[in-house]
Design a protein around this nucleic acid. Structure first.
Lengths: 204, 204
DNA sequence: CGCCGAGTTGAACTGAATCAAGAAACGTGG
DNA sequence: CCACGTTTCTTGATTCAGTTCAACTCGGCG
């Protein structure tokens, strides 16, 4: 019976847009029915308009977010300019753990770039669930590991690729974002000015 | 709440001399006696000379390493030049999960910069232990989380600081490495040429 | 001694930032 | 549906941080 459910839900991932965030990870981490139920009971689903700040200025992010639909970015201000650190599109997780882990507001904000459907789960609740359910702790480890691998790649791309190389890498990595994200934000992600990015594009 | 203390307690790790790597993390993650025993039974302690490669060229890193004594760096080649990604000093962990997670050799090598005492634990064993011991899975999540926070900080420092700023940050972050690591390697970590780093130093 | 690796210094070059101005696209109210 | 301002994007001229290439210094060590 449980197996039947897993299979059916796995199919939904590949075909239909996911209604429930648990569907999209069941392929990677096996969760018991109880864990799924209890996770859901701590999560809240919201719709927010474009421009909404999931984590407002100066505050510490204390929830992990799952984007069922929409798009967000995490950014901070450096010398009055916005620096985009990361994008999260639908069916993926957005979180900004640094502030929570270090206990200090780190200036990172999370902003919706499109009207979005967002599930949120407070870290504090999640930690209690880590204690009680081994497979939820596994889920946490899995997601953080994935994020870490991503970060390593991004770090090396930033450190030792030229601006045109980084743009090319971005295009292959996030083709859809080119249409969905304004140039100025992409440039602040790539670590170049908007003018430079515009010129890079003109050459292709 | 345990997580709120992650960074502060990392200080303790790096300062307290540890004979056994388990001692240094017991403050952060509670391990049962059985977990400690079984972890140790899968770990091997070795002494290696300066210059030894923990992860040789072209191979995939398949163990996590704990440096009881010594110093290592993770690096890769970009256009024939060495790019240093990270340092690990005594009482800390060196790992290069990307290759293991993605299943592809990623060109990252880990080299000892000083004669070192190294404990190694194969990922494959570790994953079996994750299955059997909830508190070992917690340990894994803890270590990866700490690494991720570190990466975030490093990423933002690289992306939007000038070379002199990055050098200053390096000096405060790793004061001891200035004496222990040759200039060329530090420059390849900071993302500048050796000449530039030399000039930066001359100005202070 | 002379060699060798590590670090420094100099001069020319270059990729990207900055400053400044304009062109296109977009949304909103009339 | 147009007129308007605002945001987004492009283009040009200048400046600057950092690279590149090359020569040179210094200390250690056969």
């Amino acid at each position: 019976m449980a197996n039947g459910n897993l299979l059916r839900e796995k199919q939904m991932i590949t075909t239909a847009p996911s209604i429930n965030f648990l569907d999209s990870i069941s392929a990677n981490v096996k969760l018991t029915t109880e864990s799924r139920t209890v996770l859901l009971s701590h999560m809240q689903k919201d719709h927010f308009p474009k421009g909404h700040l999931l984590v407002p200025v100066g505050s510490i992010c204390n929830s992990v977010y799952y984007l069922e639909r929409g798009l967000s970015r995490r950014f901070y201000l450096k010398d009055g300019k916005e620096v985009t650190e990361d994008f999260t599109a639908e069916n993926d997780f957005a979180c900004s753990i640094n502030g929570y882990i270090t206990g200090k507001a780190d200036g990172r904000q999370t902003e919706l770039l499109e009207p979005s459907t967002v599930w949120s789960l407070p870290y504090h609740d999640l930690e209690k669930l880590y204690d009680r359910y081994h497979n939820i702790e596994r889920l946490g480890r899995f997601l953080i590991t994935r994020e870490l691998v991503e970060m390593h790649e991004r770090l090396s791309s930033l450190q030792f690729m030229s601006a045109p190389e980084r743009y090319a890498a971005f295009v292959t990595r996030y083709p859809s974002l080119l249409q969905r994200v304004p140039l100025g934000i992409i440039s602040s992600y790539l670590g170049v000015t908007q003018e430079t990015l515009s010129r890079i594009r003109a050459k292709v």
